[in-house]
Design a protein around this nucleic acid. Structure first.
Lengths: 226, 226
DNA sequence: TAGTGGTCTAGACCACGGT
DNA sequence: CCGTGGTCTAGACCACTAG
């Protein structure tokens, strides 16, 4: 069925035969056709609606899946030696936008952390972060001197909900200094918000030197074949 | 089952009961358990191996799904008026790396296109592209004066395989001029390679002003709930 | 209201890969 | 070896919704 779509035998907008009809054509049961169609639907090749049937999607976007590894892994995978350095740790009132994103009360303090991650002695990531202490009171007792907040959180809140924003920005003066950047060198910024059951966990800004970082992707449509 | 994982009742590394056991516990058939487990597996919460069983993943990365809309949609969604301008169109020998990625012969020419996309008269995207003419001979007859190459391709090759790379870069002099950038303003670059059945289709570099562009994401783990 | 997809049961065979 | 997940059959009921 995927072949028929990519070969344009079934074109965008076309209505596919019903599961019933396809199960007869391919000589299998409807459950098998349903399973295949659901995979095509997950991959974004078709859209399904009860009674209306299944149609080939008119593609107007490229869906893609990325994997953001924790920085230590990424550095060690490159064969570099990893070093972690805590720069700042304090409990304070977060700025308004962070306060709202974490779902904190008006005068509720949160944990602020600033840390640097090196590969072969060269700064690779600046981690600037707020952690919700009502959600994670244990964080108040952790020094974060020896473990990065990202790893620490992943161990304690294994599968949170996540939202990311990616941006290319001009480095601030502080970022330029901490990341040892040259004049005019851009930074690749990942902003991440995690929460679980509606409760904000952390808000973090991951700043990477533009010249030492990139992110890659693989189509979600591909793995279906073969 | 997802609740048991997020609540740490089943912790990272833990072996889950077999499908057989779970089907008895939940009072359903193994097929139903299998379907649920497959969704958890797709979402990256568990890993499954025959004979070895199913384990909660030790999370060491954040998977995420992004959608890269075609630029015209993105601009129109913001309520801006879209304008397209073709800057350059010629058939030429591509540089070596592009030649290899498209799978072209040594002295095979390809179609080179350079175009700009405006929102409310302000440049939002520079599209610099090579198209494989053996894969798409029809492209030689298209002027691309009135339609962007991205849209044109999506209409003709609806569901190709895709690879992306994202980067923050310093704008070249030409990019700075074409995108009307200020001194030192970074660009967000998306490099895209598409192919179908092993045949390269296009290689494109989408250059966005860092100050007017961002990319967002939503966790793939979330939609399971509710 | 009729036809579509969504989902489930009950049962079966098999490939893989730890032990 | 043999327990695990992967996949399929055959049949059923139901929710949704376009016509």
């Amino acid at each position: 069925m995927q072949e028929r779509i990519t070969s344009q035998q079934w074109q965008p907008g076309d209505l596919l035969p019903s599961e019933q009809a396809l199960s007869e054509e391919f000589g299998c049961t409807r459950a098998t056709v349903n399973r295949a169609m659901r995979e095509l639907s997950d991959a974004g090749l078709v859209e399904r609606r009860r009674k209306a049937g299944t149609r080939v999607v008119q593609p107007s976007s490229h869906p893609a899946t990325i994997t953001i590894a924790i920085i230590r892994q990424e550095i060690e995978n490159k064969g570099q030696t990893y070093k972690y350095l805590l720069l700042e740790r304090l409990e304070a009132l977060p700025p308004e936008d962070v306060r709202v994103q974490l779902g904190l009360e008006q005068n509720e303090k949160a944990l602020f952390l600033k840390s640097l991650h090196y590969g072969d002695g060269i700064p690779q990531q600046l981690d600037v972060r707020w952690i919700n202490l009502s959600a994670l009171p244990q964080a108040a007792d952790e020094s974060f001197a020896d473990i990065g907040p990202n790893e620490w959180l992943l161990q304690r809140v294994p599968h949170p909900n996540i939202e990311h924003v990616f941006r290319a920005e001009k480095a601030t003066a502080e970022e330029q200094r901490l990341l040892q950047l040259q004049e005019c060198e851009p930074v690749f910024v990942i902003e991440r918000r995690t929460w679980i059951l509606g409760q904000g966990i952390t808000y973090v800004r991951l700043v990477h030197p533009g010249s030492r970082f990139q992110m890659a992707t693989r189509s979600s449509a591909e793995p279906i074949f073969n």
